[in-house]
């Protein structure tokens, strides 16, 4: 998937398979009455569109020869940074319920800021602490939103 043409072929095939999946899933949807739009119609239309356009994209890209260009994928360091960023966000989401919003926010921000700028660990702690306290007092206490308060604040 280094070039646009190769990527279009692979993604087109993937989209077509996804279209078939949606189409099959739509068949099992039941309900509807005479002269009414059955609930499975729209998902089926979408499945057909995905199948046709995915196949079309793959076939068209496969048939094109000549002009092509490289996709601007990140280098190894970029891939690692993005992966760690996404993993830390996933941990943040997963930890929010057991730890609560303020504590999960604190840990997430400390780690993320430190990871993106290793030399600034003190900045990371100060900003994270302020944001965590704001998240508790503004969103949970003042606005009364139903965020999990967590171990420290319950």
């Amino acid at each position: 998937m280094k070039t646009q043409r190769a990527a279009d072929i692979v993604v087109g095939c993937g989209i077509a398979v996804f279209g078939v999946f949606i189409l099959l899933a739509s068949i099992s949807i039941t309900g509807g009455a005479a002269h009414r739009l059955p609930p499975r119609t729209f998902p089926m239309i979408v499945g057909v569109l995905l199948l046709l356009c995915g196949s079309g994209l793959a076939l068209k890209s496969w048939s094109i020869r000549g002009a092509d260009f490289a996709i601007d994928w990140p280098d190894r360091e970029g891939v690692r940074t993005i992966s760690v960023t996404l993993a830390s966000l996933a941990c943040y989401i997963a930890l929010m319920s057991p730890l609560g919003l303020p504590l999960a926010t604190f840990f997430y921000l400390v780690f993320s800021i430190w990871y993106l700028k290793r030399s600034k660990w003190l900045t990371a702690i100060v900003i994270s602490l302020i944001t965590a306290l704001i998240s508790h007092y503004l969103f949970i206490r003042l606005l009364g939103l139903s965020f999990p308060a967590g171990l420290l604040f319950e």
Partner: peptide, 27 residues
């Protein structure tokens, strides 16, 4: 084609859940 695929993916996400007219569960 990519525009239509993008639209179809948006529609797919929006279709998940209950049908607005009949209440039937979809996807």
């Amino acid at each position: 084609l990519k525009g239509v695929i993008s639209m179809s993916l948006g529609l797919t996400a929006a279709l998940i859940g209950q049908d607005p007219l009949t209440g039937a569960a979809r996807l």
